[in-house]
Design a protein around this nucleic acid. Structure first.
Lengths: 178, 178
DNA sequence: CGATGCATGTAAGCTGTTACATGATTGC
DNA sequence: GCAATCATGTAACAGCTTACATGCATCG
C-alpha cells in the first residue's frame, strides 16, 4: 500500500485523535494548527476523505444526520497506516527539509537598496514578534499535564519561532552596521 | 501581473545571482540549498523556465551552443518581479507558516507504545545531529566577508536546526521521564 | 570505449488551489 | 427574519513528481 502524503497523514491523525468527527472539523483543526501552513481548503479535504475511505483507512457514517453531518472513524488498517506515516519521519530529507520562506528571500536581499533593506527587515521583525507573542500565549494556555503531545508541539513551534526571530535580529545587525 | 510562486521566485533569484546560467545549473543550486526542500525535478524547472520566458521575465540564448546549452538572463521586468516577490515575504502567513514534518508527527506519537517512542526519538535525534553538524560545517565554509547574504542564510539554517535539535532533546526528556 | 555527468525536454498522473454552489442551524 | 457559521461537495485549473527519452562531453 502506498504511503500517505503529509496532508493525508495529519488529517488521518486528527480524525484518530478526535473520532468520531467530521471533515469540516478536520479543516478547522488544520487551520488553527501551530504550523498554519495547512490551508486545508474544501477542495482538498473532501476528496482526501473520499480517497482514504476508498482505501479502507477510515469509515464514514452513512449519509449522516438530518443536518448532513458525516462522522468519520479510523479503521484498524488506518491506524496502522498512521503509525507507518509517523515512523516515516526518520528519513534524512524529512529531518533536513525545513523550508523557511523568509530565509529563502534573504538570499536575494541585495536586489533592494540599503534603505529598502532596513525598512523591509523592520517590517519582518515586527510581524515575527507578533507571531512569536501569539505562540507564547498559545503555549501558556496549552495544558501541559493533560495533553503532553499537544504541549510539546506548541513548545516546538514557539522555540522555532524564537530562533527565527533572533536570527532576524542578527541579520538586521550585520546589514545595518555594514 | 500575477505574483511569483515560491519556486519561481527562488529560481529567478538564482538566475539573477549567477546569470548567465543554464536551467540545469539552477536545478543544481536548488538541490544543494540549505533548505533541501526543493527537489527541483526536470519536469518542474524546464516548464517553469519556459513560463517565465513567455512572461518576459527572463530571456534565453537562441538554441544554445553545440552542446545544447541555453543561457538564461533576467530581464528588467524580471528584476522588478523578484523584488516584489522578496518584499511579499512581509505577510503574516509567510512569517508564521513554518512547516516542520517532524513536529507534525510528534502530535501523533501516542499511537506508538513507550519503547517504540523512545527508539523513534533516538533515531530522529541521531539524524538531526548529523544534519546539524553538516549545516555547521557549511556555515564555517561560507565566506562571511565575500557573500554576506549567503552567510546569513547558512546561519539561519544552522540556528533553526539547532533549535529543532534542542527541542527534540526536551521531547525525549519529557516522554521518557513521564 | 564505456560509465558518469552535463544538459535538454516530454507525458501521465496526482494533489492541491480557487471559486462556486447548496442547504441547515444558531444567535441576535 | 437575517447574518454568520456549520457542513458538504464539485469543476476548472495550476503546479509538481515520477519516469522516460535523448544526446554530447569528459575521464579513466
Amino acid at each position: 500500500m502506498r504511503s500517505l502524503s503529509e496532508l493525508e497523514g495529519v488529517s488521518l491523525g486528527i480524525i484518530y485523535n478526535f473520532q468520531p468527527c467530521t471533515a469540516y472539523f478536520v479543516r478547522g483543526q488544520l487551520k488553527s494548527s501551530p504550523s498554519s501552513h495547512w490551508q486545508a481548503s474544501a477542495g482538498s479535504v473532501y476528496p482526501l476523505v473520499a480517497r482514504l475511505e476508498e482505501l479502507g483507512l477510515l469509515s464514514a457514517s452513512e449519509d449522516g444526520d438530518k443536518r448532513g453531518r458525516k462522522y468519520l472513524t479510523v479503521t484498524q488498517t488506518g491506524e496502522q497506516q498512521i503509525k507507518e506515516w509517523v515512523l516515516s519521519g526518520a528519513q534524512q530529507d524529512l529531518v533536513s527539509a525545513i523550508m523557511d520562506p523568509i530565509r529563502t528571500r534573504i538570499a536575494f536581499l541585495q536586489l533592494l537598496d540599503r534603505s529598502e533593506q532596513s525598512q523591509y527587515l523592520n517590517e519582518l521583525i515586527s510581524l515575527m514578534e507578533q507571531f512569536f507573542d501569539e505562540t507564547l500565549i498559545k503555549l501558556q494556555q496549552s495544558p501541559k499535564e493533560q495533553d503532553v503531545y499537544g504541549y510539546l508541539v506548541a513548545l516546538g513551534a514557539m522555540q522555532t519561532s524564537e530562533a527565527r526571530l533572533n536570527w532576524l535580529y542578527e541579520v538586521r545587525k550585520s546589514l545595518v552596521s555594514k
